[in-house]
Design a protein around this nucleic acid. Structure first.
Length: 540
RNA sequence: UGGGGUAUAGCCAAGUGGUAAGGCAUCGGGUUUUGAUCCCGACAUCCCAGGUUCGAAUCCUGGUACCUCUGCCA
């Protein structure tokens, strides 16, 4: 059930009540200059679900009006990620670049209405003339060029007669506007790049503000939903539509962008991390890109459920990663079979089990779901446990195996540590224990640990991912590189139950007491590599 | 006295004048051969100060704090 208690649903609901014929059309308009991330997932969740709920449409529009950074590989990846999340855009995907001729037509119209002019001021001068937050701007000396001259220059700009930065087209609005965006904003600028999509050299490209409102109008968008930082652009959005001969007026609404603690989503920053070789690619499992999360083992369902849980508002938020993690765990807990794996092995020799003896034990693959079947494991004289389940000093921590104390071997019985065997350098070689197959169920204060018989193991490598950053809010950090967590990737060599041999790549298991893992690689030499998706919740 | 936006628990978030939903986190307790899961319980008078009202998180007045806008990026 989707949570519809948010202000955007309320707005759409009221609009429909007012006008029963209103067709709800939204759009998801990423710029193809990078990969999609968890923030985009939130935007998609809103746009696609509103359209779906009100039986409307949601388009995908690649907003490609800046040929400097946009690439076809990003378009491909964006489409792939949207599909993976389970969303279907209506019809064929749209591109802002499809509308280049239309934008141009409306620019001409504005010029003819004396509402746009070609400016010869350079970037620095424009900035200077624009004024500041507290001081009005002043008019460009070229502001009152006549229509004929403007038309001629604009057409020459399009032909390629000028260099980048030499001229630009500006709207003639108000240099004394309190909204700085209305101080004669640039509508078109010269760029000599060949467009990745149209493969044409347009020489002039519309700015976001000029393109966005017209695209929305062309597509008959009813509700143009974007993030808060575009609030000020709304006035310009309206101005443009009101001053050209277009007949559809979408309304813009803004929500606060997602800010997930301990993560970054800025494309610029991700590119920086790749450049500095902190990570290799956009889909690094430690990144909150959709592709990175997919690689890590996040499910589409858990990501969407997360978006559902965090809600939508206009308040700047700092979302704890634990909400996301809980969505994942809740799902994985019921969908994954259990198996035992030892990440930090230490050998135990059980003194009262014969070398050749094997005790067979049949156990359930899932504690609550018998449909997942069962498997047979064996207990024999040599087993491995995790070194972290052993404490090499007297203590009261009954969750650990301590000298002279007992601990439960999960599914098998009880172990009592009799002797710690060390070499001459005092390094622990193995532990000698005694086994009891019966125990008193009522005794709760004995820890339970996982284990594997040596005869039943396969070697495996485990890759453990941790947070990429050491600070809670990396977005606020000036120097990203100074807060990189050196332990964001840890590799362990250990063992896993032999039964794992038959699993498929990408299959997810819960390793008892360790977390959820996904098989990344399996080679014929019995080499396994597992990636930890997420740990189990720990209360200590 | 630039413009715009936002303030409800540690973090999100419902609430639209009738006596503060829900989630995450945290803390208790129960079930459990995973310190998991599951189950039960605890946890705010709503930024501040006034005012209107029988009644205010909701309305009015005046403050305060934070975010955002000075790209030919989006």
């Amino acid at each position: 059930m989707i949570n519809k208690k948010n202000f955007i649903y309320n707005i759409v609901y009221k609009d429909i009540k007012k006008n029963k014929k209103l067709k709800i059309i939204t759009r998801f308009p990423p710029e193809p200059n990078g990969y999609l991330h968890i923030g985009h997932a939130k935007s998609m969740f809103i746009n696609f679900n509103i359209a779906k709920f009100y039986k409307g449409k949601c388009f995908l529009r690649l907003d490609d009006t800046n040929p400097n950074t946009e690439k076809n590989k990003y378009v491909k990846q964006i489409k792939k990620d949207i599909k993976w999340l389970g969303y279907k855009w209506y019809g064929k995907e749209k591109y802002s670049s499809n509308y280049f001729k239309i934008y141009y037509k409306y620019a001409i119209e504005l010029i003819k209405k004396k509402l746009a002019y070609v400016d010869k001021l350079n970037k620095k001068e424009i900035k200077l003339y624009r004024g500041t937050l507290t001081k009005f701007g002043k008019n460009s000396p070229y502001r009152n060029r006549n229509i004929k001259e403007n038309l001629k220059l604009f057409k020459k700009m399009k032909k390629g007669s000028y260099n980048e930065g030499e001229l630009c087209l500006r709207a003639k609005i108000n240099m004394r506007s309190k909204n700085i965006l209305l101080r004669d904003p640039v509508l078109y600028r010269i760029k000599k790049n060949t467009h990745y999509k149209t493969k044409k050299k347009w020489n002039i490209y519309p700015t976001y503000d000029f393109a966005q409102c017209i695209s929305d109008s062309i597509e008959k968008i009813s509700h143009s939903i974007c993030t808060l930082e575009f609030s000020d652009n709304k006035e310009l959005y309206k101005w443009i539509l009101n001053n050209i001969s277009i007949k559809h007026y979408p309304k813009q609404y803004e929500f606060s962008r997602l800010n997930l603690l301990y993560t970054i989503t800025s494309k610029r920053k991700i590119k920086q991390l790749i450049k500095k070789k902190i990570i290799k690619k956009w889909n690094d499992p430690r990144l909150m890109t959709i592709s990175g999360m997919r690689k890590r083992g996040y499910t589409a369902k858990s990501i969407n459920e997360f978006c559902n849980k965090i809600g939508v508002s206009k308040k700047n938020s700092n979302i704890n990663i634990s909400i996301l993690e809980e969505c994942l765990r809740k799902e994985l807990d019921i969908t994954t079979p259990r198996i035992m794996a030892i990440l930090n092995p230490i050998k135990i020799i059980i003194t009262n089990i014969n070398k050749n003896e094997t005790i067979k034990i049949t156990i359930l693959n899932h504690p609550k779901n018998k449909n997942m079947g069962s498997r047979e494991i064996i207990l024999s004289s040599k087993i491995y446990i995790d070194i972290n389940d052993f404490e090499n000093k007297p203590s009261n921590n009954f969750h650990k195996l301590r000298l002279g104390k007992k601990i439960k071997l999960k599914y098998a019985g009880i172990l009592k540590l009799k002797k710690i065997i060390k070499n001459e350098k005092k390094k622990i070689l193995y532990l000698k224990c005694k086994y009891y197959n019966k125990y008193n169920k009522k005794i709760k204060k004995i820890g339970i640990i996982h284990w594997i018989s040596k005869k039943n193991t396969i070697k495996s490598k485990f890759r453990l991912f941790n947070k990429l950053f050491t600070k809670k809010n990396p977005n606020k950090e000036k120097n990203l590189l100074s807060i990189i967590n050196p332990k964001s990737l840890i590799i362990k060599n250990g063992y896993i139950e032999k039964q794992i041999k038959y699993i498929k790549k990408k299959k997810i298991y819960q390793f008892e007491r360790e977390g959820y893992f996904k098989l990344k690689k399996y080679t014929y030499k019995n080499k396994f590599i597992f990636d930890r998706i997420i740990t189990l919740k720990k209360k200590f």
